[in-house]
Write a protein that binds this DNA or RNA. Structure first.
Lengths: 172, 172
DNA sequence: TATTAGTTATTGATCAATCAATAACTAAAG
DNA sequence: CTTTAGTTATTGATTGATCAATAACTAATA
């Protein structure tokens, strides 16, 4: 055959991967699944990503980047900072749920390159949050940042496990 | 051959499984690995656990049971409850790190029986904590419980990912 | 006709799980 | 006590399925 898609195959594959990985986890996702979702043949995936692992990392990086960008785009007064950051994250979660799921999945993948990507992603989010909280003059920064991250991750887990009762209902 | 171990093979296998699963995750653990650690042959594992999944669930259940038991054994005044519960959990984490790791691993395993076990385990811990906090007359219970659980889970993740900087250092 | 975009066919590895065999013991019968 | 019958503990060999990855091919376009 020829060239049905002049377009951005690599991007299409990334998005297909994101969806399937988010739903089935890393190990239960086959490259055939991703290919099917992207509407191409299984081996053709490897024209764009050398390995399944490389594709997963690309998807995971995108997820972490978007969170960081989201936080960077929050513009708020010192008093409103935390509230606004939570709002922004909530919106992000609704708009890109697969990327949220991917974060959760990344945590217990033991392949070392993936683990590295997860460590770096979480670490960056913490560093940036710490900086923002500190600049806003928040008291007890370290502890507040930990609680902020912890509640965010519990939120992700609650979504991923389909276990809404894990978090308090009065949680706008 | 004959009967080298008159004893508790099933328990030995469970403990071997706990160790290997905790280190390598669910999918990268082979039944051959577990057998090796238990000092038996690979097929013999199946005499005691019908499937690899069943063995994992047995190990996961043990992990969740021990957390619940730990909390149930905390005896403290209302004012000291939270502090004492955190202390108890810290001690548990040092004594049974593999069970902590297993909790983290369970979260992103998509096999439905395992997901069910994880949901039930977390749900029970939340219910019990809520009850204790409520009995102690803590204000804003739901929110406090969420934060308590969230910080606990972040702690587990920080340990599992070998990323200590994820939590605040001043956190006895 | 060269390049690009894609395919089909295939392989090599890995594993969970099954099965048939055997070693080592126990207990009853003679 | 010693044969016989039966049980328990365990293994080696194998199988069937699944997958990531490669190689070799084909068709459309410019």
């Amino acid at each position: 055959m020829g060239r049905p898609s002049g377009g951005n195959r690599k991007e299409e594959i990334l998005e297909a991967g994101l969806e399937v990985f988010a739903k089935k986890g890393y190990y239960n996702t086959t490259t055939a699944h991703i290919a099917e979702k992207a509407g191409i043949s299984q081996p053709y995936v490897f024209r764009f990503y050398k390995t399944k692992e490389e594709l997963f990392i690309a998807a995971l990086d995108r997820a972490f980047e978007r969170i960081l960008d989201t936080f960077k785009n929050v513009d708020a007064s010192a008093e409103q900072l935390v509230e606004k950051m939570i709002d922004a994250y909530d919106k992000l979660s609704e708009l890109h749920p697969n990327e949220i799921a991917l974060q959760v999945i990344g945590i217990s993948v033991t392949e070392s390159a993936i683990r590295n990507a997860t460590q770096k992603g979480l670490s960056n989010i913490r560093s940036y949050t710490l900086e923002r909280f500190r600049d806003a003059g928040i008291e007890n920064v370290e502890r507040e940042v930990t609680t902020f991250l912890a509640r965010g991750i519990l939120c992700n887990i609650s979504y991923f496990l389909d276990l809404p009762e894990l978090i308090d209902t009065k949680n706008k």
